[in-house]
Every structure is written in C-alpha cells, then in structure tokens.
Amino acid sequence: MLTPRRFGPVRTLAVAGGLAAAAALLLISPVGPSCPFKMLGLDGPVCGGTRMLRALLAGDPLRALDLNAFALVVLLPSVVSLFVAGARYELGRARRLWPAGARGTVCAYLLGAGLLLWTVLRNIPVQPFAVLSA
C-alpha cells in the first residue's frame, strides 16, 4: 500500500477551491480575456475556450461545442482526469499522474498532434474548415 503524502488533502482541497473560485468568476465576469493568437490573426487550439467554459457552466453544452469542440471533447476530459490523478497521487492512492513508459509517450504525442492538427484545421479559410474558427 502506498503511503499518503504530507499535507496531500490540504493541497488537493486548496486546488479544488481555486478551481471553484475560477468557475464562479467565469460565470459572473461580464468580459472574458482575449486570446493571444487573435493578435496574430489566427485561431489557437484553445481560442474560445474561456467562452466554451462559460457556456458549459451556464448549462449550454451545444453553444460550448460550437465555441471550441476540441477543448470540450478532448482537453476538458484530459484536464479532469489529470486533476483526479493528482488528487489520487496526493492522497497516496497512485504512484504517478501520467501513464508510464510507452503508453504515456503515446498519450503525450497524440495530445500534441491533436492540438497541432486542430490549430491548423481551424485556420484554413475555406469551407468546411471555416466553421471551426472561434
């Protein structure tokens, strides 16, 4: 059995509280931050992500999907699973946050390739790809 880390539950609760506060601010803030890719005239892989989170927190999953499908379908579940893995690690119930060996390498490459492909596809200015821009 793995031994729990010192102050693990306190850190996990602090991170959860911070995420809850960020979600509350997203819901009540009248203006969201702008995307740095927009300054270059491009759509980045997470452009529209803040608006996507706001729509999701407001209970509008179709609008969230329209704003950034990749962030909703791939990145958000990845972040949630990493948060759960981090909580398990802090509580001493897991040995690592990311899969070890070849599985972890393949996961990292797939995620990176997906981000790159999504960025390229959403910046192609012809149909059907123009629909993907934020």
Rank of each mutant, 00 (worst) to 15 (best):
R88C: 14
P30T: 07
A58T: 10
L42A: 14
A108F: 13
L76A: 15
Q127N: 05
R93E: 13
L121R: 00
P36H: 06
V31A: 13
A134Q: 09
L53T: 04
G48A: 10
M52G: 07
L111M: 14
F7G: 00
A14Q: 07
L40C: 04
R63A: 15
A100E: 15
A20D: 02
R103H: 10
V106F: 06
D43R: 05
R96Q: 14
A85T: 02
A108E: 02
F83V: 14
R6M: 01
G104Q: 11
S78T: 15
A113K: 01
L26Q: 08
A71P: 01
S34M: 06
L76R: 03
W98A: 02
R6F: 13
V10D: 00
E90S: 13
Y109V: 15
A22W: 10
L25W: 14
V120Q: 04
V73R: 05
V74Y: 06
P4N: 04
V46G: 08
R6Y: 06
A58F: 02
G104F: 09
T3M: 03
P99H: 03
P77H: 03
L110R: 04
L25G: 08
A87F: 03
Y89E: 05
A14W: 10
A134F: 12
L25Q: 08
A24C: 12
S81V: 10
A20G: 13
A100R: 13
A100K: 10
A69F: 14
L67V: 05
R95Q: 12
L62A: 15
L57T: 10
V120G: 08
F37A: 15
V80H: 01
F7C: 10
G104M: 12
A64F: 11
A113Q: 01
L82F: 15
L75H: 01
R88K: 10
G114D: 07
L19F: 14
T12V: 15
T12N: 07
V73D: 05
L62I: 12
A20F: 11
L65G: 02
M52H: 01
V15K: 00
R51F: 04
P77I: 11
A16L: 15
C35M: 11
R103P: 02
A20I: 11
G101L: 05
P45R: 00
C35E: 08
Y89G: 03
G112S: 14
G104T: 11
C35H: 06
L56I: 09
L56R: 02
A24G: 15
M52Q: 10
T3F: 03
L91D: 00
A134R: 07
A14Y: 06
